[in-house]
């Protein structure tokens, strides 16, 4: 299991595009938002948590189809399926690798971008906490979406149509925690609910993803 994780991480770093692309996309989305909204600082400050969460979500979505696509093309997914490792564990590890290569850098970059958007200082810990707790759920749900669409020719667009509605609860609680934190209200309740979503998806989604993979590998 750890071997697979290390292999996936190494591939993501050496093949390029894994780490950098998602981060750059996050940066660009965040920078573009004020152009669309107008330069009023008060307005941008107010919606900064929402912008950052949407940006993180889209950056996450961008790299989802890479989770299984490369392994599917060169046939290593079949090898993984026939290996003694259960397919559920493979899906879980893939989700973890995706989170380490996209979710974690996003969490690290968010404070820098939050400064750009004038997020009030008391909101920073809540923003980081909500992203750190919420992005694993994005990866876990996304792994399921990637498993559903792995064999399809035009899977990319379909993948976003399938996955985005599933992201609703995560986004809702995550952005709510960050927003309440920035406004100095109690953010612990949405944060706890967000953690609940993350644990639920981390526990359940590998099974759904494995079921979808088995169908696609038939």
């Amino acid at each position: 299991m750890i071997g697979l994780l290390i292999r996936d991480l190494r591939l993501a770093i050496r093949a390029g595009g894994g780490f950098g692309l998602g981060l750059a996309f996050f940066l660009i989305v965040t920078v573009l938002m004020p152009f669309g909204i107008g330069p009023e600082t008060g307005m941008i400050t107010r919606i900064a948590p929402g912008i950052l969460w949407i940006g993180a979500l889209l950056a996450c979505l961008l790299s989802l189809d890479r989770i299984f696509a490369l392994d599917w093309e060169d046939g290593s997914l079949e090898l993984l399926a026939t290996s003694p490792l259960p397919l559920e564990a493979v899906a879980g590890i893939k989700a973890l690798a995706h989170w380490i290569t996209t979710g974690l850098p996003l969490v690290a970059a968010a404070p820098v971008l939050a400064i750009l958007l004038n997020l009030p200082p008391e909101g920073f810990p809540w923003l980081i906490a909500s992203l750190a707790l919420g992005t694993p759920a994005l990866s876990a749900i996304g792994t399921f979406g990637a498993a559903l669409t792995v064999g399809l020719k035009r899977g990319g667009l379909l993948l976003s149509l399938l996955v985005l509605p599933l992201y609703v609860p995560t986004l809702l609680f995550g952005a709510e925690a960050a927003r309440r934190g920035a406004e100095g209200m109690d953010a612990l309740t949405p944060l706890a609910l967000l953690a609940g979503i993350t644990f639920l998806t981390a526990a359940a989604m590998p099974f759904a993803a494995a079921a979808a993979l088995r169908v696609n590998l038939r």
Binding site: P165, V168, P169, L172, F173, E176, P190, L193, I197
Partner: peptide, 8 residues
Amino acid sequence: ISRYALLF
């Protein structure tokens, strides 16, 4: 989940 999350 979304239904109840939206209530919140």
